[in-house]
């Protein structure tokens, strides 16, 4: 099974070495920046181009292979087609880029294509930044980061540590359960269940023969795991010490600041509808 998105790749780059909390915050800041609209199309091109370069640089730094980036973007073409159809059929009231062509009294504007392209570029950037985060950060470190951000909720009796423990156990058991699923699938196939052929109904009923044994085995596993944890003195209500600790370094603060400045800049330009080209006396689109 191939999940390009969300798979940790153990390299040793500066992105990998960064603190998970800084990376998580920077990712969210970047996603915010991506979504701010610009006053004109040229400004959009400049802003989105800048962000695209930025995220490409980060992703390249994590040594993620171009092929795995392309594989995870592959499924986007359905989205491209869908957006194009929507934007061509429902054009906006103001179109600044002009008419592409008219056909039988139906006008197609260039804006529709630009609009679709903008949404796609946004999505691509979101996927790229998420890839950069997940390929350079161990799931467990992400869990710790999440736990750290949620820790202010502790006085409100929000079970922060239990949630983090649950997530880390869920992550730890993904490969085990996948293995289980494969084993059940092979066992059922050898008994004549066909998962790949037949009509939809047949395939769905075939799937139940996979899901039910998987459920049963997961419940058995969870009971045994709970016993094992209890025997090793685990008590969610008691205080525990921590083996893993995240380290915030100067470089983390630096990158977080840089990201904050970029996001703040984008928001300011967007909110004040600043057009660099107009300021320089160039009339742009």
């Amino acid at each position: 099974m191939n999940f390009a998105l969300g798979k940790y790749v153990p390299y040793d780059t500066w992105v990998h070495r960064m603190d998970a909390r800084a990376k998580l915050a920077a990712t969210i800041l970047f996603m915010v920046a991506v979504f701010f609209p610009m006053a004109t199309w040229t400004m959009t091109l400049v802003a989105q181009g800048f962000l695209l370069l930025f995220v490409s640089f980060i992703l390249a730094s994590t040594k993620t292979r171009l092929r795995s980036i392309l594989t995870s973007l592959k499924s986007l073409w359905v989205m491209v087609l869908f957006l194009l159809i929507i934007y061509v059929l429902v054009p906006k009231a103001t179109n600044t880029l002009g008419v592409a062509w008219t056909w039988n009294g139906w006008t197609v504007y260039w804006d529709s294509f630009a609009e679709a392209a903008r949404v796609i570029v946004r999505l691509v950037m979101m996927i790229m930044i998420a890839m950069a985060l997940t390929s350079s950060t161990k799931p467990l470190d992400l869990t710790y980061a999440l736990q750290w951000y949620l820790s202010p909720l502790k006085p409100l009796h929000f079970p922060v540590e239990e949630v983090a423990m649950t997530i880390s156990i869920a992550l730890r058991f993904i490969p085990t359960l996948l293995e289980d699923a494969m084993r059940v699938m092979r066992a059922q196939s050898s008994r004549g269940v066909d998962f790949a052929h037949g009509n939809l109904w047949k395939r769905i009923t075939g799937l139940t023969s996979l899901i039910i044994p998987l459920f049963v085995s997961s419940f058995l596993r969870s009971e045994e795991l709970a016993n094992a944890m209890e025997c090793r003195c685990y008590d969610p209500r008691e205080k525990r010490t921590k083996y893993r600790k995240l380290h915030f370094r100067v470089s983390d603060i630096f990158l977080l600041l840089a990201m904050a400045v970029i996001t703040a800049g984008i928001i300011t330009i967007s909110a004040m509808k600043i057009d660099f080209f107009a300021l320089m006396g160039i009339v742009a689109l």
Binding site: R232, D235, E238, T241, K242
Partner: peptide, 10 residues
């Protein structure tokens, strides 16, 4: 895991 539960210092 067990050490954390027994509150052994990090």
């Amino acid at each position: 895991f067990g050490l954390e539960n027994k509150r052994i210092p990090r």
